[in-house]
């Protein structure tokens, strides 16, 4: 008995040790980013003795907020993320509902269309979409970033699997008998039941929109419309005016929204994936 107890304590320690080592590995780049963001500009290229800077200076943060439009970039990114997440959730859950609940003639055809197009690199679609956006006057608007991201093939796949596994058909039939229409089934029965799945998809869509670089680069023009990744890129665009310290400060701050969202949503995220767990 004592033996198993000791064994248990040992393995507990062992697991903690492994997890802590990996957590440290995970945090090193964040630490290094933070350290480099609080060094005076003139020190940036000099060697640090030990792991802590000799001089501390918050000048990078000051110039991030006073010399760049960082707050505007942050605002643009957040708006774009909210809109594309919302729209993506709506479209994907509707399509997922159609695929998961109904039998219809073109179902397989549409579904393979979705899966097949996942693998085609986005770059190749840029010119036609760019032309279209330009023809309807949407270049340099939020819509030009939100609309193309609204259809996530992964999202539809996920919602289909999720709805199939967590939405009992009998429940729908019973509701139909009670006289609820098809739209009512979706809004009143399906959506509340698949909420955790929406959480998963929401984080995925948000991450996608938050970190995309190339598409916004092509679609946006004015300096005030830039998103965070594009804005930060201007800090090292000019080889004669490299602002690594400011870049570190800005990057560190821009990771915070996603980490907060994950911490708030992590239970739902993980439970959401569980219930929807994808069947091969």
């Amino acid at each position: 008995m004592l033996g198993t107890k000791r064994k248990r304590t040992l393995s507990k320690l062992g697991i903690h040790l492994i997890l802590i080592v990996y957590a440290i590995f995970t945090l090193i780049p964040f630490y290094w980013m933070a350290v480099n963001s609080i060094r005076p500009a003139g020190d940036f290229y000099s060697r640090m003795e030990g792991l802590f800077p000799d001089n501390i200076d918050f000048g990078n943060y000051i110039s991030l907020f006073s010399n760049t439009s960082f707050l505007a970039w942050l605002w643009n990114s957040i708006i774009i993320c909210i809109l594309s997440t919302f729209l993506g959730l709506l479209i994907c859950s509707m399509a997922g509902f159609a695929f998961g609940v109904y039998r219809f003639r073109l179902k397989n055809f549409f579904f393979w269309l979705v899966l097949g197009s996942v693998a085609i690199p986005e770059i190749v679609t840029i010119i036609p979409v760019f032309r279209l956006m330009s023809d309807i006057g949407m270049i340099d608007t939020y819509s030009s970033l939100v609309l193309p991201y609204a259809v996530s093939m992964f999202g539809i796949f996920l919602m289909k699997q999720y709805i199939e596994s967590s939405l009992p058909m009998e429940l729908l039939e019973a509701a139909r008998i009670d006289g609820i229409g098809e739209a009512g089934l979706f809004v009143r029965i399906a959506l509340p039941l698949v909420k955790p799945g929406l959480g998963v998809l929401g984080i995925y869509l948000w991450l996608n929109a938050w970190s995309s670089y190339f598409w916004p680069l092509i679609m946006l023009k004015s300096q005030t419309m830039l998103t965070v990744p594009l804005g930060l890129a201007t800090l090292y665009a000019d080889p004669w005016n490299l602002q690594y310290g400011v870049l570190m400060a800005g990057s560190l701050i821009s990771t915070i929204p996603i980490i907060i969202i994950f911490i708030c949503a992590q239970d739902q995220f993980i439970n959401g994936l569980t219930a929807g767990s994808v069947k091969g």
Binding site: I126, I127, F130, L217, I218, S222, T234, A237
Partner: peptide, 17 residues
């Protein structure tokens, strides 16, 4: 009105435009 990006980005964006 200045729009700042790296020259690689300018080349790509301009090629598309």
């Amino acid at each position: 009105v200045k729009v700042q990006m790296s020259h690689a980005d300018i080349n790509a964006k301009l090629a598309i435009a």
